[in-house]
Simulated assay, not measured.
Amino acid sequence: HVSNISRQLLAPNKMLHIALGITRGMEYMHQGCNQRILHFDIKPHNILLDYNFNPKISDFGLAKLCARDQSIVTLTAARGTMGYIAPELYSRNFGGVSYKSDVYSFGMLVLEMVSGRRNSDPSVEIQDEVYLPEWIYEKVISWREWELTLEMTAEDKDKIRQLSIVGLWCIQWNPKNRPSMTKVVNMLTGRLQNLHIPPKPFVSSDNRPMPQNTTNT
């Protein structure tokens, strides 16, 4: 039996367990196979959970194989799901497409998981819509708590903060500043005190890339 991660209300220890499982799966795809597998559609709906909350990465319909030593891949068009697509898939001005593009999608998934909110499309024009990474970043740097964590223990709040910092590192706009999944494992299993607050992983709303009719292609 499996269920979809996006349908779950999860305790912080379950979130950390799931995030680590996804991380190790992606690490194997990126580093452990004879050919590197780039998934290009990491999102909550493609993460399935068994009875023990062990995650399984599913739907490899958009995946691409490349050599393990190939740092940049060529795509004819952006692929993925809106809200999880790395900026370099819209514009090469942000860098080359690589396994770090999957890292970005993973970061967005983690931020959604810890916040209980859906990621707003950066191109929305509704002024009262707050871009999710920006919302979480302000909470993290100010140590402010949000509604999800008000009734949690100090240990649980630390887990949420740890996941949030890792997620924010993973969605850095410059792919070179995103950690590999091997590094993410170390960040999630290490001490919160050893994690540094990342730079703002977004730019002002006037300078965000504007998607042009991107679909699951």
Rank of each mutant, 00 (worst) to 15 (best):
H1V: 14
S3C: 15
N4Y: 14
S6G: 05
S6P: 04
R7Q: 14
Q8A: 13
A11T: 13
A11P: 00
K14G: 01
M15N: 07
L16C: 08
I18S: 04
A19M: 11
A19F: 09
A19Y: 10
G21S: 09
T23R: 08
R24Q: 14
R24F: 02
G25Q: 06
M26K: 11
M26L: 15
E27D: 13
M29C: 15
H30L: 07
C33G: 06
Q35V: 06
Q35R: 15
R36Y: 06
I37C: 08
I37L: 08
L38Y: 04
F40N: 13
I42W: 10
K43T: 01
K43Y: 00
P44N: 06
I47S: 05
N54Y: 03
N54W: 00
P55R: 02
K56Y: 12
I57R: 13
I57M: 11
S58P: 10
D59P: 00
D59W: 04
F60R: 09
G61H: 14
G61L: 13
G61S: 10
L62F: 02
A63Q: 12
K64V: 13
L65S: 05
C66D: 14
A67V: 02
R68V: 15
R68S: 08
Q70K: 14
Q70F: 09
S71K: 15
L75V: 14
T76D: 02
T76K: 09
A77N: 07
A78Y: 03
Y84T: 07
Y84W: 12
P87V: 10
P87N: 11
E88W: 02
L89S: 01
S91T: 05
R92F: 12
F94I: 07
F94R: 01
G96M: 04
S98Y: 01
S101Y: 11
V103P: 02
S105K: 04
V110E: 02
E112P: 10
V114K: 04
R118C: 05
P122K: 07
P122H: 10
S123Q: 13
I126N: 07
I126L: 03
Y131H: 09
Y131G: 01
Y131T: 04
P133R: 11
W135L: 07
Y137S: 06
S142W: 15
E145S: 12
E147R: 07
L148P: 00
M152K: 12
T153I: 11
T153A: 08
T153Q: 02
A154T: 11
E155D: 08
E155Q: 13
D158M: 02
D158Q: 08
I160M: 12
I160N: 01
R161Y: 06
R161M: 05
Q162M: 09
V166A: 11
C170D: 01
C170E: 02
C170Y: 07
I171Y: 02
W173C: 13
W173P: 00
N174Y: 03
P175T: 15
N177Y: 12
N177D: 06
N177M: 14
N177L: 15
R178T: 06
P179G: 11
S180I: 05
V185F: 09
V185M: 10
V185A: 00
M187W: 02
L188T: 05
T189L: 06
G190Q: 10
R191S: 00
L195Q: 03
L195W: 04
L195Y: 03
P198G: 09
P201I: 08
P201M: 09
S204L: 10
D206P: 03
D206M: 13
N207E: 14
M210V: 15
T214K: 00
T217C: 11
T217G: 14
